[in-house]
Design a protein around this nucleic acid. Sequence first.
DNA 1: TCACACCCTGTAGTAACTTCAGGGTCAAGC
DNA 2: GCTTGACCCTGAAGTTACTACAGGGTGTGA
Lengths: 154, 154
Amino acid sequence: MPKTYQIGELARQADVPVETVRYYESLKLLPKPGRAANNYRQYTQVHLERLSFIRHCRSLDMSIDEIRQLLRVRDRPEADCAEVNAVLDEHIEHVGQKLSELQRLKRQLIALRERCQTASRGADCGILAGLAETQAIGSERPRDGHRKRSVHRD
Amino acid sequence: MPKTYQIGELARQADVPVETVRYYESLKLLPKPGRAANNYRQYTQVHLERLSFIRHCRSLDMSIDEIRQLLRVRDRPEADCAEVNAVLDEHIEHVGQKLSELQRLKRQLIALRERCQTASRGADCGILAGLAETQAIGSERPRDGHRKRSVHRD
DNA sequence: TCACACCCTGTAGTAACTTCAGGGTCAAGC
DNA sequence: GCTTGACCCTGAAGTTACTACAGGGTGTGA
């Protein structure tokens, strides 16, 4: 008999909260495990590996939908992995975009911060004045590239 | 009589969707405007300036709660603006943290991507193999500093 | 009178979880 | 036998900052 795990042990091994495991099951990322006589979930090594895979992808900030695509390839090993490359390339680009957005943002914030070095009266605060100016300081508005679509539950 | 705006015009001037204006009202970021005989909202220049302030803060990726703090200072101009500085400093640090997290992330993704340059069979794909490894590649897990608390609606 | 653009309220959906309420199960200790 | 505590269960609601939608009213030009 292969070793089985209760949800708590599985969760510890994969370093995930227990609720998240159940959540992934509801999203069908994890297959429904067997149940013991007391209705507790019974997981196997296969579940643990799949869960680790998912968490690793999440730690790389992939969306659930991206992970779904990777799992699909993973589930039929004969298929070629061009799709994997595509997912990853796209994801790398998203991250790159976000990165430059954040860099711009930080420059703006620092410029703003320099307008009030002393704790002066609010009325004279250069920061509040700067924020009130209708023109944004370094300007353009990017706001949220990389939106994703619905995550269906049962 | 000072000029008044309907919600649509206010929204155009501040470059915000109309729904967002109503949403801000529900959060009490914007005071309730007067109403015309037909029950349409009637905004003034004061509303426009406050809305622009809010949008500018949002374009700097501040949270609603952070903006609330800034508005509080803005609403009593006699108060000193040390709080403004604090909010901004903290925000700058959050952004800086997120930035280095993303940089680390991108490095990891690129390293991963190099494991499969050719469209090989999924079974041999270095990327899938890499993602299956329990040890994260560059590792540590940061995941979400900078969490914020509830935004109360009416 | 019609189309059409605008306005209203209230509710639900988005991403990826987390938290909570209200239970059942099981082993150890008294 | 009973309690305590750690574990498990389900289902629903909360988190952030909106966005979208349903189902209506208002105002203006042709």
